[in-house]
Design a protein around this nucleic acid. Structure first.
Length: 491
RNA sequence: CGGGGUGUAGCGCAGUUGGCAGCGCGCGUCGUUCGGGACGACGAGGUCGGAAGUUCGAGUCUUCUCACCCCGACCA
């Protein structure tokens, strides 16, 4: 048990908070609802960014950057969109401060009121479509495939580190297409990118699906999402991809001349993942000793800890460690040699476990004598001794094994906690007692969906894309249903 | 916005009837330690969230105020 880390069983959300803070990923800032992402946490986010960025570029997208401020009038151009975001917008009303007449401090200069208020972007569709209007004239300008890495602000009432903060970091893709089919294809292509990123890099299995009308993005025709299951049985929406139809094109009058010389509105998509993925990563794999990071996203993949009494020992060990470090680095592995004299080995062991470093090598006088290294893996906590020779291959293989092992564990957890139920009693029982994903039939109406969510706090996470289309009867109304949908309590 | 709570050292907290501002962790120096979160000695660190009031005297009592946290309604 780690010092000061609440156990998951004791209090899951406390465990999560403790972990984020003690593993040095982030901390609360002096600004309400906003957090500071610390270097170790940001390093993980940077890894995610660089992988995703490459995936976007490999599929033809380019990065650009649009303003943080959105004129108020823009937001109201698309009816559903403004409806969805109005309640959580930060608004800039003034552009100047002045010294208080009382002499202490500063205050807003009321004479410096903005003619039109500016909204801090909660998402960028409006400013982007206002811009695209000037970029698109002909079918030759299409498709337009743009992504931006940015911060956005949503004035949430309650916040949680990484999962929901007032300001957060994300990427938002915004594309324009000549046809509906092409836009839908793009939406699905991105959904694929998200789900394979989750699987192959985060070691996180997800369910892909469409959102119900109630859960749909404000302004979208169809919203697709990936849904992940956390260890406490709650679902976390981890990425969304929207088919926007012609809603924004119409609202911002974005048209193009097609091959036949006819003017048409373009078809649009938007899609995003945020620093919320950090929350998913933390909650999906970690244990009561601390983080467990998939090696492919770990900022430090291997740490080498020297164990010594005398400085002569340290010199010998350091020479040996430098050799190992070099060999591992040649394999493309990120290694830290921690020879700080300020902490004891035991302290370091606990510290790197807390921080989720996948593999730890310990090197002491005994190892120097026997030509061995002690290898400990974070996911299973197994320790073993290995000869110095060929250590780089062993570690390299172990990293891959850890990556696949934690994925397997997550898949196993998801399967064990996914239930098919056919009655509402059973449904409530599982939602109340066990949590997890529940697959059940639903009659497709908003009323039934809202009844279920108000009675059980479980919502329809998505209508899965990949499951078989089994017909049945709605668990609440008994009306016919074309397929089971995925319910869960969600973050 | 409704309900509850907390503001005292970097962090976590104690502070009795109003009477010298404390404890643990952390931090600094020195020494012994070092194969699973070591130990000892010495030391630094405070407008007690803010303002006003009662009092010889306020961390403590009164009034006002600000901030943050937790639970609900909203959400990637």
């Amino acid at each position: 048990m780690s010092k000061g880390l609440t156990s998951r069983k004791e209090n899951y959300s406390q465990w999560y908070n403790d972990l984020v803070i003690k593993a040095d990923l982030a901390e609360y800032s002096s600004v309400r609802g906003c957090m500071v992402i610390k270097p170790y946490g940001y390093a993980i986010w940077e890894k995610m960014q660089s992988v995703l960025d490459k995936m976007f570029k490999d599929t033809g997208h380019s990065n650009a950057y649009f303003p943080l401020f959105i004129p108020k009038s823009f937001l109201s151009r698309e009816a559903a969109h403004v409806e969805g975001f109005a309640k959580e917008c930060a608004v800039v009303t003034h552009y100047r401060l002045k010294n208080s007449p009382s002499g202490n401090g500063i205050e807003v200069d009321e004479t410096a009121r903005l003619e039109e208020e500016l909204i801090i972007r909660p998402t960028s569709e409006t400013i982007i479509w206002n811009t695209y209007k000037n970029w698109i004239q002909s079918y030759r300008d299409l498709p337009l495939l743009i992504n931006q890495w940015a911060n956005v602000v949503r004035w949430e009432m309650r916040t949680r580190l990484f999962l929901r903060t007032t300001e957060f970091l994300w990427q938002e893709g915004h594309t324009a297409h000549a046809t509906k089919e092409e836009a839908i294809e793009e939406t699905l292509k991105i959904l694929d990118i998200y789900s394979s990123f989750a699987r192959d890099w985060m070691a996180l299995p997800v369910v892909r699906g469409t959102k119900t009308e109630v859960e749909r993005f404000a302004g979208a025709v169809e919203t697709y999402s990936i849904e992940a299951l956390m260890q406490d049985g709650k679902a976390l929406q981890s990425g969304t991809s929207h088919f926007l139809g012609q809603n924004f094109a119409k609202a911002f009058d974005v048209t193009f001349l097609n091959r036949e010389g006819r003017l048409e509105h373009v078809w649009a998509t938007s899609w995003g993942v945020s620093t919320r993925l950090m929350g998913a990563l933390i909650m999906a794999h970690s244990d009561d000793r601390g983080l467990i990071l998939p090696p492919k996203l770990a900022p430090i993949q291997v740490v080498i800890v020297p164990i010594y009494k005398k400085t002569e020992d340290l010199e010998l060990i350091s020479r040996k460690a430098a050799g190992i470090k070099k060999k591992l680095e040649q394999e493309g592995i990120t290694v830290r040699y921690d020879d700080r004299d300020t902490n004891k080995p035991g302290w370091k062991f606990a510290e790197y476990e807390l921080k989720g470093v996948p593999v730890r090598l310990a090197l002491g006088p005994r190892d120097i004598e026997n030509n061995t290294v002690e290898i400990a893996r974070r996911d299973t906590l197994e320790k073993s001794l290995h000869p110095f020779d060929g250590i780089e291959n062993l570690v390299s293989d172990m990293l891959e094994e850890i990556q696949s092992n934690i994925y397997k564990k997550a898949v196993d957890f998801k399967e064990k906690n996914t239930f098919r139920v056919d009655t509402y009693e059973e449904f409530r029982e599982i939602i109340e007692k066990k949590g997890g994903f529940v697959l059940a039939h639903w009659d497709g109406t908003n009323e039934t969906e809202e009844k279920i969510s108000s009675e059980t706090k479980a919502t329809i996470r998505c209508i899965p894309l990949d499951s078989e289309k089994e017909e049945g009867l709605c668990i609440v109304t008994g009306k016919p249903s074309a397929q089971r949908v995925l319910f869960a309590r969600a973050y």
